[in-house]
């Protein structure tokens, strides 16, 4: 009995953990090209979810059915996320990187705050349901109840990560991406524009954030604060796994998801956030480059 409950909690937690993994993967994308991440990524998740909700509710669902309008909304949401990512890159990151300062940390926080306030006023402060054609009733495998929406999360997360990894490994553009990450100046000498590569990474990272929002909204509902807890755990996953291992974030994301679901069961739902935060501080203290990250050598 007890084992079944633990298994149940662990599995549904692990599936949710894939959302953290996806957002963390978005951090890795920008970190690879520019050694920077968007501290306002949570707001990007939230704003994109709201935008997608608006697209779904445009009235098309009455005429075309939910399935079709959902299908049309997803690309719209992804494009919106990409545009927001580009805005962050242009307004918050580029200048600081040119000046080799860490101003981008503060600026990306500030931009996030602006998006938050804008969303609050445009879409309201209330949480709203997100319609989806995917049913809610769980199906049973080996005695475990599994929600189709959670499966959709898993499929979406692994699908897009697979696609981007394919892009990175199989196309010349992907190799250029890695070249910028390995040696920005040398990449420039090959005719690869580092600025455009960084823009591309921020665009992709924005899309990834948008997809995370679209996938998670049917489960959590949409509201201005929907991502504030998720993003902290995504940070944890990114740091614990290291900022350069796509495989690592999936593992750590699922682990953390399972852990917190157990923590909220045994310690009370308020402590849900605690394992991620403790894990993050511990990981930073013990292995700052992450469990799956590469160690660096100090040079003078």
């Amino acid at each position: 009995m007890n084992a079944a409950i633990i298994g149940q909690m662990a599995i549904s937690g692990a599936l949710m953990g894939l959302v953290y993994a996806l957002i963390a993967y978005g951090f890795q994308l920008t970190y690879a090209t520019s050694k920077s991440i968007n501290f306002g990524q949570g707001e990007l998740v939230m704003v994109s979810a709201f935008f997608s909700l608006t697209l779904t509710n445009l009235g098309l669902s009455q005429h075309w059915g939910l399935g079709l309008s959902y299908g049309l909304m997803v690309p719209g949401g992804l494009i919106f996320g990409a545009i927001m990512g580009l805005v962050v890159e242009r307004a918050g990151v580029r200048l600081a990187l040119e000046q080799k300062s860490e101003g981008w940390i503060l600026l990306s926080i500030i931009l996030g705050l602006f998006f938050f306030s804008a969303a609050e006023n445009i879409w309201g402060r209330d949480d709203r349901p997100f319609p989806t054609p995917i049913p809610e009733e769980p199906f049973h495998v080996l005695g475990l109840a599994i929600g189709p929406r959670e499966v959709a999360v898993a499929v979406g997360v692994l699908g897009i990560m697979g696609l981007i990894e394919l892009l990175k490994r199989k196309t010349l553009l992907g190799k250029a991406f890695e070249a910028v990450s390995a040696d920005r100046d040398a990449a420039e000498l090959m005719g690869i524009s580092a600025t455009r590569t960084v823009m591309l990474s921020y665009g992709l990272s924005g899309s990834v954030a948008a997809l995370a929002g679209i996938l998670v909204s049917p489960i959590t509902t949409v509201g201005p604060t929907m991502a504030s807890a998720i993003i902290l755990k995504a940070f944890s996953v990114a740091v614990v796994a290291g900022l350069d291992s796509g495989f690592g974030v999936v593992l750590v994301g699922m682990f953390l998801g399972a852990l917190e679901s157990l923590a909220s069961f045994y310690l009370g739902s308020g402590w849900r956030e605690a394992p991620g935060l403790v894990l993050l501080i511990l990981a930073l203290a013990l292995r700052p480059t992450g469990v799956f990250g590469k160690a660096t050598i100090r040079k003078v």
């Binding site: 190799k175 070249a179 090959m190």
Partner: peptide, 29 residues
């Protein structure tokens, strides 16, 4: 070809060479 060589360490030799021709090649496949 810069001082200190600056090859892309994690990439394969062939990928390094392909990137040398980056501006003349198709971006995707």
């Amino acid at each position: 070809s810069p001082e200190g060589r600056k090859v892309f360490g994690p990439l394969s030799v062939e990928d390094n060479l392909l990137l040398g021709a980056y501006s003349r090649l198709p971006r995707f496949l």
